[in-house]
Structures are given as C-alpha cells and as structure tokens.
Amino acid sequence: MAVSTAAPHAVTEEERTSTGLNHRMVLMWTFLGSECMFFASLIANFQVQRGRSLNGPYPDELINIPFTSVSTFSLLMSSLMMVLALAAIQRGDVKGLRIWLLATAFLGSLFLGGQVYEFTGFVQHGLKLSTNLFGASFFVLTGFHGTHVTIGVIWLMSLYFAAKRGRIQQRDSLSVELAGLYWHFVDIVWIAIFTIVYLLKV
C-alpha cells in the first residue's frame, strides 16, 4: 500500500482523499474483504458436506496430490512474477512490465490447464456434479476459484495489451497494483483450498 502513496506525480484536488489512499485502492481492499466471506462460505459448505457422500467415487480414489502440488507451485510462482511486474512499472520499465505480466498470465493459465485436466479425469472416473456431495461441493468450490483465476488471466492480458499499445506508463502503476492485489488474493485462497480439500484427511 505504501507504494501507492508515493505516486510520482503531484496529487491534485480531484485525487485528494481523506485517507491518502486512492479510491480504487480502498475499493479493491474492501472488495477482497467481501470476497473472503464468499470463499469462507464455500469452504464451510465443503467442510459440512465432507464424508456425507452416499456413494463413490470418494476423494481418496481420485485426488492426486503430487499433480495438484505442481499446479499449485505454478500458481504460487505466478504471484512472484506479479510482484516483479509491479516493481518493473514502478521504476518505469514498460518492457519489463510486459514480460512479467505475460509470465504471470502464463503460469496462471498453466494452473487452469491443470484444473481442466483434473476435472476431466474426475469425470472420466465417474464423478460429476450430481454424482455425490463430494463431487458437488468439490466442483463448486474449485470451480468458483478457477473462475476467479480465469478472470484474473483476462485482466492480466488486458493490461498486457494496453501496455503494448503504450497506454500504461509509470504513473499508471496503480492499475497494475490493483490487478496484483486481486491476483495475490486468488492465490492465497488457493492455499486455503489446497490445504483443506487436498491435504486434510479429516
């Protein structure tokens, strides 16, 4: 947050805010707070439905922890790329911004590809939305997370093309920072989901 207050241009009257933080920055943090309750409810639903499936396939038969660990690793690394993208534009390096944005989007897409592969495998093993409560709560929870990642990738690519047209300069670093906040949030939510859905056996 501190970096946004150190914007390189003078603050005009229209941009003066009571807290010194940009409106869009406060909006994004508030939105993410609201999103916490969204994912908390979905995770709570998953936990409530745990072990209530009346028929298989059951989680133990399907979940492949090594495979998902790899896609988790790629999502976590994408957060690092995102940090580098923001750092690049904050020092005015538009080319660096484009490289790191592309890397972030690529790693995010890799994660999504892993999810598509995983979902396909589950369906081939007979697990659909309507099969049992594990299928229903698993697909709804990870599906909504995947949707968030997809929106994030679209956002990052929109930024990439905007940067390519020269429409993102050093003074626009806030636009990148907001996308970054969203991206890190989606990443952190995945850490919770990965732990609860894949690693915990209770």
Binding site: N45, Q49, R52, L54, L129, S130, N132, L133, A136, S137
Partner: peptide, 14 residues
C-alpha cells in the same frame, strides 16, 4: 439446475 444434493436429504444433503 444441475441436480446436486446440497439441501436434499435423499442424496445425503442437509
């Protein structure tokens, strides 16, 4: 719409 059983007791839901 998609025939899950989150709130349907016959499918284990609550």
């Amino acid at each position: 719409f998609f025939f899950t059983h989150f709130f349907v007791p016959s499918g284990g839901g609550d």
